[in-house]
Computed example of a mutant assay.
Amino acid sequence: MDTRTTAYELAFPHPGQEEPDRVVVRRTDASGPGGSAVYADDSGIVRAEISDEGEVRMLPSGGRQALTRPTDVKPLP
């Protein structure tokens, strides 16, 4: 993965739908627990630490949040 990537599209499974839900996250100034950049959607609810190798760790943005791993991660230009 390109370390200059500023945005990713994350796809999440959605029960009862063929197509996954897609969310765009953009790089923030924060680093996650693994030391990689944190990306967030415009609402700040979906947060993920994404490594240079494309490994994704979902991060909670509030209490009682059920975190789901994305089924697909695509860097955006």
Rank of each mutant, 00 (worst) to 15 (best):
E55C: 06
P33K: 13
L67K: 00
S31Q: 14
P60V: 11
D2K: 09
V23E: 04
P75D: 05
G54P: 09
I50P: 02
T6P: 05
E49G: 01
A66W: 03
R27W: 09
A30W: 15
D21Y: 07
T68S: 04
R4E: 15
R64P: 00
E53A: 15
T68I: 03
E53N: 07
F12Y: 06
M58S: 08
G54I: 09
M58V: 12
A66Q: 09
T28D: 11
M58I: 11
S31Y: 13
R64A: 10
I45W: 10
T3K: 13
G35I: 07
R47T: 05
M1N: 06
A11D: 02
T28N: 15
F12E: 03
L67Q: 00
I45V: 13
G63L: 08
T6W: 01
P70C: 01
R64Q: 06
H14D: 13
P13W: 07
A30P: 09
T3W: 01
V46H: 07
V24N: 07
I45R: 06
I45H: 08
E55N: 15
Q65H: 02
V73F: 04
D72N: 10
P20T: 04
E18G: 14
A40P: 07
E55A: 15
G32V: 04
Q65I: 09
D72M: 05
T5Y: 02
P20G: 07
L59Q: 10
G54C: 07
D29T: 14
P70H: 01
G54D: 06
A66P: 00
T71M: 06
G63K: 08
S36P: 01
Y8L: 01
V24R: 11
A48F: 12
S61L: 04
D52T: 12
A37C: 06
V38R: 10
D29G: 13
T6H: 07
G32E: 10
R69D: 07
R47E: 00
G62C: 12
G44E: 02
E53W: 09
L59W: 10
V73Q: 01
D29L: 12
P33W: 12
V73R: 03
T3N: 06
R26K: 15
R4N: 15
P60N: 05
V73T: 04
S31G: 10
Q65Y: 01
